[in-house]
Nucleic acid binder design. Structure first.
Lengths: 156, 156
DNA sequence: AGAATATATTCGTTTCAACGATAAATGTCA
DNA sequence: TGACATTTATCGTTGAAACGAATATATTCT
């Protein structure tokens, strides 16, 4: 019995700080939400990074963004973004074009097909998030958003 | 000018619900924290899933866990966990052994080397989380944890 | 004009994640 | 008991992501 107890104590040796507890909760929650979203995305053959790029490009408007800017928003290295765009371009969801003013930069924009695909996803995605987070209610959601924004201030 | 305005309006067409706003904030925050942790883990050549397995096994005590249980905790498919364990075993961080009672199951436990590695990481990880989340203070962190636990209730 | 810089791409490798199929041990039931 | 199903873990394959180094092209600086 003494050995048993000791073993149990041993397990708890690495105390969890409140910060760690919060971190773990963030991880679990985000992970669960992402899994749900992944199912929706899989129905149209999109990965998370791919979906993110399309969302960014839709928000960027018809002129598109420089590849460099996409990298910065995704916080992803240039080579990886290039290949990400390759796949989306191969499916006709985005288009690339050299910038005439500065021929080093490649402008990326979402195509009509890309917009159509996103529109098809909009309702299911909103529905999913409402289903998963709606029960918190307006007040708590606002509090959550505030806390998260505050958290990120020291995160950069 | 009218065209300009119209373009701006177009961008905002896909309204963001409060739930989506919360989701995006969760994503950004967790992502930022994970990137920070990844740097620490990289210093010892561990990936996130690998670190998670080690943490789980340390918490499981000296008897270890059945491979199946590891799968369930990680929410990862059996084949992938097998290979994840392969890599950790190759580095001597975990050990596998057939269960005598039920020879189908493989018991996985963390080794001394694995424990040593985790201990080396404990301080930097705690420091990192304190650095990134400590400024919220006890009250806000507790509120955050509560909100996240509440959020996950509808997430399974 | 020549050197340094910026932008994007190509190449190579490791890991993760999803899928199907298989091997071995155990459980079920006619 | 023997045929059949179930559980557990592994193997094979594929696609994608992430990290690093190197390259090509265009621009900027001196």
């Amino acid at each position: 019995m003494a050995g048993r107890l000791q073993a149990e104590i041993k397990q708890k040796k690495p105390f969890r700080t409140l910060e760690q507890e919060a971190f773990l909760n963030l991880l679990r929650t985000t992970d669960a939400l992402l899994r749900g979203q992944a199912k929706v995305l899989k129905s149209v053959g999109l990965s998370h990074p791919q979906y993110n790029v399309l969302r960014i490009l839709r928000g960027a408007g018809p002129h598109g963004l420089a590849c460099r800017e996409v990298c910065e928003r995704l916080i992803t290295r240039d080579p990886d973004v290039t290949r990400l765009l390759d796949r989306l371009e191969a499916r006709g969801l985005i288009a690339r074009e050299r910038n005439r003013k500065d021929r080093r930069v490649v402008m990326v924009r979402i195509t009509e097909g890309g917009l159509r695909l996103l529109r098809r996803l909009d309702a299911p995605i909103v529905h999913l998030h409402t289903q998963h987070l709606g029960h918190l209610g307006t007040k708590r959601l606002q509090a959550l958003v505030e806390l998260l924004e505050l958290a990120r201030e020291k995160t950069a």
